[in-house]
Computed example of a mutant assay.
Amino acid sequence: MASKPERFLSVGQLAARCGVAVSTLHFYEAKGLIRSQRNPGNQRRYPREMLRRVSVIKVAQRLGIPLASIHAALQTLLEGRTPTAADWARLSGQWRAELDERISRLTQLRDQLAGCIGCGCLSLEACPLRNPCDELAGEGAGPRLLDGGESL
């Protein structure tokens, strides 16, 4: 007969099950993404629900979602409840627009960069990244044409 799984996991057990380093779990906990309790020996013990929460964090990070956005999304879950498939659908839906915007910006940057490489900046008249006479200085520092401003 199979034994009943433990309700709490040690930091090492959680790290092994999730495929992350112990230091990653400590970092997530310091950022408020996961939580633990202390046992009588003052060792961290993680509720089993943290298995799925760490998985959600890992997938979101792989998608390029910033930790601040992940934290904000996880705050919408009831404390201590395991994220469900419905939770993931809602969270991923929130991140979809952010990812679509990032993909659009990266595609635009890639296409503009290809134009720059083509000219090699040997001809300022033909270069799509040119800024003759520093006309864009009044708009602020940085690559104004590459940073979501005017399309080239």
Rank of each mutant, 00 (worst) to 15 (best):
K31A: 13
A16Q: 13
V22S: 06
G19F: 00
Q37A: 15
R62K: 10
A16Y: 04
I34S: 05
E49W: 04
P40I: 05
A30R: 12
K31D: 04
Y46V: 08
G12R: 08
L51T: 07
R48H: 07
I57F: 04
R45F: 12
L63M: 15
T24N: 12
V22D: 06
Q43Y: 15
K58A: 13
V56H: 02
R62T: 06
L63D: 00
R35L: 13
A21P: 03
R44W: 12
V20S: 03
I34G: 05
L14V: 02
S23M: 11
V56W: 08
V22G: 01
R38C: 08
R17Y: 10
H26D: 03
L33I: 06
C18N: 03
Q61M: 06
R52G: 04
E49S: 15
A60T: 00
R45Q: 15
L51G: 08
R62Y: 05
L14S: 03
L51P: 09
F27P: 00
G12N: 13
E29F: 12
R35A: 15
G41E: 12
V59I: 14
Y46K: 10
A21C: 04
Q13V: 07
A60I: 01
V59K: 03
V22I: 14
A16D: 13
H26S: 11
I34V: 14
N42P: 02
F27E: 01
I57L: 04
Q13H: 10
Q43E: 13
R17V: 08
